[in-house]
């Protein structure tokens, strides 16, 4: 069987030789980590849904008092653009584009992720100001845990992107860097995927 049947898109392609073969086990191992992360997020979703009743709200401010749907829409747009922009990184690496182009796409991803975090933190601050602090009710605890954990993931994704930019500058795009960029891609797209669940089930469904 030809090695061309590895990842159709997030792979590196035959022309990358060793890195292409090495990516198979390493990136699969990273997928296993991402799936354990998915379980954590899923359980937090279940907790959030369970607390979404009068008992869980416990008289504290609820979804209709706290959620700003416009800000959620802006965050969703920024994260979707940021996720798609990583396609630029994957393809630039795969088709041996210049180092500057890979760095540029990484910078776009980091900037869009930072924009997302800006609006998310702004929301958190205003919600806390309106009495929507984590200790106010079970529902608010689960809300802060779930959305906050996603925010922490995006922050670490940005730190990872900056670290990769440093590695590209200092080491160049060698085999190890290519494999790490593939894993970062899985991570970054995964965060976008979790956000679909968050904006749909955490923000939109309770307001419907």
């Amino acid at each position: 069987m030809s090695d061309n049947t590895l990842y159709p898109g997030l792979n590196l392609g035959d022309s990358h030789g060793e890195a292409h073969v090495g990516a198979e086990t390493t990136v699969f191992g990273f997928w296993v980590f991402v799936m354990s992360d998915l379980i954590i997020f899923g359980i937090l979703f279940a907790a959030y849904a369970s607390y979404l009743d009068p008992l869980g709200l416990a008289g504290a401010p609820g979804p209709k008092d706290l959620f700003d749907i416009r800000s959620v829409a802006i965050q969703t747009g920024l994260l979707l653009l940021g996720g798609t922009a990583y396609g630029g990184v994957s393809l630039s690496v795969k088709y041996n584009c210049s180092r500057a182009r890979v760095l540029g796409w990484l910078a776009v991803c980091a900037a869009l992720g930072a924009g997302f975090l800006f609006f998310e933190i702004k929301d958190f601050v205003s919600q806390a100001g309106e009495g929507g602090v984590p200790q106010a009710s079970g529902w608010l605890s689960s809300y802060w845990a779930l959305v906050g954990l996603h925010g922490v993931h995006v922050s670490s994704g940005i730190v990872w992107i900056i670290a990769m930019m440093g590695q590209i500058v200092w080491r160049g795009i060698d085999d190890a860097v290519k494999i790490r960029l593939s894993m970062l891609g899985v991570f970054w797209h995964f965060l976008d995927l979790v956000w679909i669940g968050i904006f749909s089930f955490v923000f939109l469904v309770p307001l419907a």
Partner: peptide, 30 residues
């Protein structure tokens, strides 16, 4: 974006892993 599919050796393995995790998650979260 994540290039999961049933065709292609690696993307199939990834998809099977994802589907197994999803079943576990459905049991626990559901």
């Amino acid at each position: 974006f994540l290039h999961l599919s049933l065709s292609g050796r690696q993307s199939r393995e990834d998809l099977l892993l994802v589907m197994f995790s999803t079943i576990l998650l459905a049991i626990m979260a559901g």
